[in-house]
């Protein structure tokens, strides 16, 4: 479905640094891939190279077997769902108009758009009659991100890109939305590329995890492989941090009187 072959992208004043360096990655149809990394690791760059918000300096990117450089970038983006942190809803448009934007750009019939909007709002758990006419500033952060997901899915894309979609949400909302994303991904048979800096999110949602650091891939693995066989020291420390968290949580649950503290 998606193939990145030896892709490089420079950034900085004179292209002095690599945002992504010699990166290769193949995503199969129906996979949910998490691209994991800290800020500056190049994970968002990977996403933007796929829908041509950025152009690579070297290498090839293919979506559905076709090189994206041969596609009109505007037409290409309309076939790819895109969700960003804080949703990026258009504040002057109602929820319905936000969701309807891509079908409108594609010139769908008015009636088709209206029924599609209701269908999608229902899919992301927002009762259409209640939310259709609201405006982004009348929504909670979680509701806004649900609308963001609905908007990305409006024109029935096969491929969805999500850039830290749950990063700014409170834990309960985040967990709920993570569950719904997994459900929607399965129900619609999507191919999904999820950028995140949260290893737990990656572990719980993804079929495979791509660990990035400084523009390069450190490991591509299933959650189980990652936990059991980290490829290098960096991945190992990453995994150990989460494992330590898990042990502490278990210890807390078993002996609540003597919580373990970090001192110093």
């Amino acid at each position: 479905m998606i193939e990145l072959v030896e892709v490089s992208k420079r950034y900085g004043a004179a292209g002095a640094r690599w945002a992504v360096h010699d990166l290769s990655l193949a995503v199969a149809d129906g996979e949910l891939i998490a691209v994991l990394g800290e800020s500056g690791s190049g994970k968002t760059t990977v996403l933007k190279l796929v829908n041509r918000l950025l152009e690579p300096d070297a290498g090839a990117i293919r979506v559905g077997g076709r090189d994206v450089r041969g596609e009109d970038p505007v037409a290409l983006r309309r076939t790819i769902g895109y969700v960003i942190q804080h949703a990026g809803l258009l504040p002057h448009l109602s929820v319905a108009d936000n969701v309807a934007m891509v079908p409108r750009l594609l010139g769908w019939q008015r009636a088709d758009i209206a029924s599609r909007v209701d269908e999608l709002l229902a899919l992301v758990g927002l009762p259409p009659d209640e939310f259709r006419g609201r405006y982004p500033d009348q929504l909670s952060g979680g509701q806004r991100q649900r609308v963001g997901v609905a908007r990305a899915l409006a024109a029935r894309p096969r491929l969805v890109l999500l850039d830290e979609p749950f990063g700014a949400l409170d834990p309960i909302t985040r967990a709920t939305l993570q569950g719904e994303l997994a459900r929607i991904h399965r129900e619609l048979g999507l191919t999904t590329l999820l950028v995140t800096h949260d290893l737990v999110e990656a572990l719980t949602l993804a079929d495979r995890i791509v660990v990035m650091r400084a523009g390069e891939i450190r490991q591509i693995a299933t959650p189980h492989q990652l936990l059991t066989a980290p490829a290098d020291d960096y991945v190992a420390r990453l995994v150990e941090a989460v494992r330590a968290q898990g042990r502490r949580l278990l210890a807390l649950a078993e002996s609540p009187e003597q919580p373990e503290h970090d001192r110093g």
């Binding site: 505007v74 290409l76 983006r77 309309r78 960003i84 990026g88 934007m101």
Partner: peptide, 9 residues
Amino acid sequence: AVEAARGMG
């Protein structure tokens, strides 16, 4: 909003 709009095509 601009990034989302560009990203949606």
